[in-house]
Nucleic acid binder design. Structure first.
Lengths: 330, 330
DNA sequence: TTGAAAGCGCTAACAT
DNA sequence: ATGTTAGCGCTTTCAA
């Protein structure tokens, strides 16, 4: 059933040349005399020879593989990152070794360390704080982080979280909202930045921010958290959610609690996942260009692999997308 | 910056033993005398040695990597497959080499052939017809197909597409619908099966099925196709869409064309993607258990890798999920 | 329990 | 333009 594949030696023998010649031919390294080339072509064809990438990698030290870790592939934000990264990788003849850490912090480091041994470079999304990320430098492989870490020695791509929530808060204040709540996800590294962004904007209007926590960055968690926000002692007239999934869950539950959306409460998310547009009311959010983030991260990594100087951190401009889930309140 | 990692020889030297001993120690292959074990442990710790999986794979012929190709990682159906497959893979200490073929048929075969050289086995989602899938047998690697292919020599996991649309049509007929349309995706291998399932059910009630095509399995395509379905000469009172994404797009556009949902038209999808639940009206659909499909495919593959006899094809029971996008019509 | 030695399939000098 | 040869880092007989 499983006859083992032909090796370079089989081809060399069949074509009556040396293995070195076969190797050079496979790599297009030089030109050959017509008869040799013909025999080579024939032998390779006849044997169905394909060179073994493992053996090649052993010598060259390159695998043409990029490791990519995400916190949860089910989250469209990460899905889009993978999409973008995969596209650029394929263009450059790289393949993705994907690991979904499933929001399990304890597994992150060992998984990444194991991954590092099998790839040329890594793109990492992690909940580890910057201060605890030094070990990544010792992987001896180029790494690009999916976050904004300007002070780290590791290149990164991310967004300005402070600005994202600032923009949302500004939009809500401009629309006449006075009681704004933030439904966050405390485990995320960026949660505090997002709180500060909203708070700063509200403070300028002499308003304060009530902070709640959703315990997970998912729609289900948004559903569960809804009642304590909406049925608690200080009901908000607008809610900024940590991400679109939480917002989507929140809206669904708010509706089934009998609240009118967006009349009774405006809701916003962050990420601009594809399905916010198809919810109703369509979700107001901040586009953080997840797919482009994936593309850029991969581009930076491939540049690093090509020997270019590492390029520090890059951010995308968050862009407010106003849809129907936020409304003027007078 | 990039000092190359220590090899097994460095460890052997540092510990004053042979490389064979180090190898056996790393693989936990046997027991060692206390002093040797202590020196081994110390040397490995001191040097930060990690064995090179590439070199290991060269000899063992195993990479502990599974290749997974999907048509479009952005489609939650495939995202969930990846999720399930990744989970099972990690449990068994395998890693996923992911390729998103981006619905590009021409690339499928070369990408899969290249992938096959780097992995122990493959899980493949492909638009290739069964008749043109024989070359996969010659990859000399276990393959599991993500589709229902009972007549192929390759194990597969999929769903009963005929039954899925039959169930949807039955549900609609039971609700009193008389003019049912199908908004399909002609490029999909399973589109015809789905048409037949719906048609068969309708025929039993002396009804016929109008068939339209969305040109892509995406929400955007559903939006674009909506007007020709709803504003054409034979307006349906119910639409079965090829998948949830098309249905979501269709509903959005129908609403903005001024139709009331679900009063003016009932809509269904297939897949039960997570966001159908958060649309409004929440989408009636058929659950095909994408995540479980990914898990099962990986389980079957890992069993095949462990030498078990290949296990043919498996199907999940489609399960009707009635939500708010379909309504009784009298 | 430990070690010596022969490769896995290939590339990369270095000849010729 | 083609061939010879020495490994890449590791596992695996086989012997001690």
């Amino acid at each position: 059933m499983k006859k083992s594949s032909p090796t370079i030696r089989d081809v060399a023998a069949a074509a009556g040349v040396s293995v070195a010649t076969v190797s050079k031919y496979m790599n297009g390294a030089q030109r050959f005399s017509a008869p040799v080339e013909a025999r080579l072509k024939a032998a390779i064809e006849a044997l169905g020879y394909r060179s073994n990438p493992l053996a090649r990698s052993m010598i060259t030290g390159k695998t043409r593989t990029i490791g990519l870790t995400v916190l949860d592939i089910s989250n469209p934000h990460f899905t889009n990152i993978v999409k973008g990264a995969n596209r650029v990788a394929l263009q450059h003849d790289y393949t993705l070794l994907l690991v979904d850490t499933e929001e399990n912090q304890a597994r992150e480091r060992p998984l990444i360390e194991a991954l590092a041994l099998r790839v040329d470079g890594l793109i990492v999304s992690s909940r580890m704080p910057d201060e605890a990320s030094d070990w990544m430098l010792e992987l001896n492989k180029p790494v690009v982080l999916l976050r904004r870490s300007p002070h780290l020695q590791i290149p990164s791509v991310g967004i300005d979280n402070h600005l994202a929530t600032y923009m949302l808060a500004r939009h809500l204040v401009n629309q006449g909202h006075r009681r704004v709540a933030y439904l966050g996800f405390g485990q995320a590294r960026v949660n505090d930045e997002r709180i500060r962004g909203a708070r700063e904007c509200l403070a300028e209007a002499d308003l304060t921010l009530d902070v709640y926590d959703a315990h997970a960055p998912t729609a289900q968690a948004g559903e569960r958290a809804c009642s304590s926000v909406m049925l608690g002692p200080s009901r908000p007239d607008a809610v900024i959610c940590y991400n679109d999934l939480i917002a989507l869950g929140f809206m669904k539950e708010a509706a089934s609690l009998g609240f009118g959306l967006p009349q009774d409460v405006s809701v916003t998310g962050i990420d601009n996942v594809p399905y916010g547009e198809y919810a109703s009311p369509a979700l107001t959010t901040v586009d953080i260009q997840s797919e482009k983030m994936g593309e850029l991260a991969m581009q930076k990594l491939i540049e690093a692999l090509a020997g270019k100087r590492e390029s520090g951190y890059a951010t995308f401009e968050p862009r407010l997308i106003v849809r129907e889930s936020t409304i003027r309140r007078d």
